[in-house]
C-alpha cells in the first residue's frame, strides 16, 4: 500500500516551513501575549496594560519608535525609488550597479558604527568641518548620534534600507512596459505627469509593501538603537528588552505587554496594507 501519494509528498515538504514560520512564530507571540496577561497571583488580568498605559516612558518610546520608523521609511522609499529609476533608465552598466549593494553586506549594527565614525562629534565630518574652518572645537559640531531626535538612527536606517528599496523596486522597473510611458508622451504628458500617472501606479503596490517591511523592521528594531540610540527616549524594543532582562522579574509582564502592543500595531498596519496592495495588484493584471 502506498502511504503517500505524490501530491501529499509536496504538502509534507511544506510541513517544516509551516512549523518554523507559522507554528513557532505564532506560538511565540501567543506566549508573549499570555505572559503579559499574567496577574500577580497567576490569574489572567489586564492590570499590566493599565500600568503600562500610565507609564510615560512607554508612551514616549512608542512615539519615538513610530517617528523614527516613519521618517526612515519615507526617506528610504523616496531616495530608493529615485535611485532604482536612475539605475534603470540611465545606468545600463551591470558592474557599476553592483555598487549599490555594498551597504547590504554590512549588518545594521555596522551601519550604526559607520554613522558614528562619520557623523559623531569626533567623527570624520567634524574633522572635515574643522579643517575647513567651520568649527573650532569638537563641541561645536552638532550632536547627530546618540541624540534624542533620532538623527543617527535615521541616517543608519536610510543607508541600510535604500539598497533594499532598490532591490525590491528594480525588478518592478524591469518588468514595467516602457511603451506605456511612450504612449502617454505621445498623448502630451510631460515627464512629471508620466511619473505620476503612469509610473507611480505600477510602483505603488511594491513601494507600499517595501515601505511596510521597512517600517515594521525599524519600528520593532533592537540592534541599532541599542548601539547608537539615546538613553532617552528609547526605541520600544530596547525598552522591552531592558525590562525583560533587567533581572527584576516583576517587570517581565510589562515588557511582554509592551512587545504585544508593538507587535499588535505592526500586524494591524500589515493587515491593512497587504489587503490594499492585493487590491491594487489585481487591477494591474490586465490591459497589456
Amino acid at each position: 500500500m502506498k502511504l503517500f501519494s505524490r501530491k501529499k509528498a509536496g504538502i509534507l515538504w511544506l510541513f517544516p516551513v509551516l512549523l518554523l514560520l507559522v507554528g513557532a512564530v505564532w506560538y511565540a507571540l501567543l506566549q508573549v501575549l499570555l505572559g503579559s496577561l499574567e496577574g500577580g497571583n497567576g490569574q489572567f488580568s489586564l492590570s499590566v496594560y493599565e500600568t503600562l498605559a500610565g507609564n510615560s516612558r512607554f508612551w514616549s518610546s512608542a512615539f519615538f519608535s513610530f517617528y523614527v520608523a516613519g521618517i526612515s521609511t519615507m526617506i528610504s522609499l523616496v531616495l530608493g525609488i529615485f535611485i532604482a529609476r536612475g539605475l534603470y533608465h540611465y545606468l545600463e552598466d551591470r558592474y557599476s550597479r553592483f555598487l549599490i549593494w555594498i551597504p547590504m553586506v554590512f549588518p545594521h549594527f555596522v551601519g550604526a558604527y559607520l554613522v558614528i565614525l562619520i557623523f559623531s562629534q569626533s567623527g570624520w565630518l567634524s574633522t572635515a568641518a574643522a579643517s575647513l574652518g567651520w568649527i573650532d572645537a569638537i563641541a561645536d559640531f552638532p550632536i547627530l548620534t546618540n541624540d534624542s531626535r533620532g538623527i543617527g538612527l535615521i541616517l543608519t536606517y536610510v543607508w541600510k534600507e535604500i539598497p533594499f528599496v532598490v532591490l525590491m523596486m528594480l525588478p518592478v522597473y524591469q518588468e514595467m512596459n516602457k511603451e506605456f510611458g511612450h504612449a502617454a508622451a505621445a498623448l502630451g504628458a510631460g515627464p512629471y505627469q508620466r511619473f505620476k500617472d503612469i509610473e507611480w501606479p505600477f510602483l505603488k503596490p511594491g513601494a507600499l509593501e517595501t515601505g511596510l517591511i521597512i517600517f515594521c523592521f525599524v519600528f520593532g528594531a533592537f540592534e541599532v538603537p541599542y548601539l547608537i540610540g539615546a538613553s532617552s527616549p528609547e526605541m520600544g524594543a530596547v525598552l522591552a528588552y531592558e525590562w525583560f532582562y533587567s533581572g527584576d522579574w516583576s517587570r517581565r509582564p510589562e515588557a511582554l505587554a509592551a512587545m504585544t502592543l508593538l507587535t499588535g500595531a505592526v500586524l494591524t498596519a500589515a493587515g491593512f496594507i497587504l489587503w490594499y496592495v492585493r487590491k491594487l495588484r489585481s487591477r494591474l493584471g490586465g490591459g497589456k
Binding site: N177, E179, F180, H182, A183, A184, A185, A186, L187, G188, A189, G190, D197, I198, P201, R283, L284, G285, G286, G287, K288
Partner: peptide, 16 residues
C-alpha cells in the same frame, strides 16, 4: 509630449 502627433502602437497599451 509637445508635438501635435499621436501614435498608436501594435498593442493597445491602455493604462491598466
Amino acid at each position: 509630449e509637445d508635438r501635435p502627433v499621436v501614435m498608436m502602437f501594435q498593442k493597445p497599451l491602455l493604462f491598466p
